[in-house]
Write a protein that binds this DNA or RNA. Structure first.
Lengths: 231, 231
DNA sequence: ATAGATTAATGATGTTTGTCATATATAAAT
DNA sequence: ATTTATATATGACAAACATCATTAATCTAT
């Protein structure tokens, strides 16, 4: 569905730098791959990352533990997108925890290679810059939404966003399957509140559910809700 | 107080690129300066920026209008820091609005010069990359705080952060003076709620106020509040 | 210095959201 | 297949927060 491998940063810089280093060649041949099972911690807050992960297949969630014990989900990363680049670029410990939402295949790119390329490969660096610029915009938008919209509206928006990012199966159910707790940790609310709102959306015939599976029925009204329009 | 001009990105790249272009020289001589008065809009959401602003003196706030009519403040920018780089780098319209909190002097750097340097000046590009990486971390932290901590705790944290960023005068009052509405737009709450919480903090002898001026008295307890510890 | 406008403060009240308790459904393990 | 654990659902209630109304204080302009 969402096969963005042509956007994968690995391809970008293998193509651009014409394989000057052995390491680079090694990676482009796909030799350093890492697989994770659903629930595996890819890296944790405070970890010193030895490289970045390019997701070949699967979905990871990035989250951060709050002092109140809740684990706020910041964003999801999937096919062709990259995990851990901020920490490696800034040469700082990871600010977020990365956990596999599904079974996951990734390509591991050692830190050294990244840092070498930062020095020598302008196209690569510019690509990263665009990446961070985009992430920053998204983060700012999340700040506005989360602080100013009520829970129900945030859930509506989250559902649309998840459907849009990861697609639906043949029956129209969203591919990504999250626990109610995960959803509540995206919108920043109590799990019970999240469940209640989903029930409401169900009663209002905007969504359907079947276990963890969620199907969006009335995209229009959900959209309006997401934009903060309540009736 | 907070004279970070040695960190100013202008100095960074004038120093590093040894003034190869006339434009560059012109800027480093401080010829293209722009001043703003308190309340002036430097740029607005959706504007196509023709360059970035390096703040020489003063403070600007970056905010974004929510669908509920509230103007969420995302961050402040002051001496030696840069405004508008994300939009120029990404070559996108501004995602945020920038308004002068004080009278403000800035150095305007035309877009063309930035983009040229992105192609040719690795050190400059790396500097920007570090910048964005840092901003992204800060934005992620804000997401966690704003979604998981109660208003009072967020206000405590905000006050400490503002004092820390902009310093205090000889009497110990914070240099930056914001309206109650501005503070409420940082923490994402109603103005009245914000005022009530400030009154509470005053009763608890954690802060003192005199008009818009705020002085922090008990830094320790405020710090604990900011960390989410409520007694 | 005074009038008018804006901002701050506080009370009363209603809404939203969180917490705790408990029931039901679903998944996992033996 | 049956038990055990875990996730989902819902009710009852409490806490946090928003909204509206009103008064007090501060700022601005003449």
């Amino acid at each position: 569905m969402n096969n963005k491998c042509e956007k994968c940063i690995v391809k970008k810089f293998t193509g651009l730098q014409a394989l000057t280093s052995d390491q680079l060649k090694c990676i482009s041949d796909g030799k350093i791959t890492r697989t994770f099972k659903k629930g595996d911690v890819i890296f944790d807050e405070g970890d010193h990352l030895k490289g970045i992960y390019c997701v070949r297949f699967g979905i990871a969630k990035l989250s951060k533990l709050s002092t109140n014990g809740k684990d706020q989900i910041i964003k999801f990363v999937s096919n062709g997108e990259v995990l851990g680049q901020r920490s490696v670029i800034a040469q700082e410990p990871a600010n977020l925890r990365a956990v596999a939402v599904n079974d996951m295949d990734s390509c591991f790119i050692p830190k050294k290679l990244i840092l070498d390329n930062l020095q020598n490969n302008t196209s690569f660096t510019l690509e990263l810059l665009q990446n961070l610029a985009h992430e920053l915009k998204e983060a700012d938008d999340v700040i506005v939404n989360i602080s100013q919209k009520p829970v129900k509206n945030r859930i509506a928006e989250t559902l649309l966003h998840l459907e849009n990012s990861f697609g639906v199966d043949s029956e129209g159910f969203m591919i990504i399957q999250l626990s109610r707790e995960d959803i509540s940790n995206i919108v920043g609310t109590a799990t019970e509140s999240c469940i209640r709102m989903l029930s409401e959306l169900k009663k209002e015939k905007l969504i359907e559910t079947s276990g963890k599976r969620i199907k969006i029925i009335n995209r229009n009204i959900l959209q309006k809700l997401g934009e903060g329009i309540n009736n």
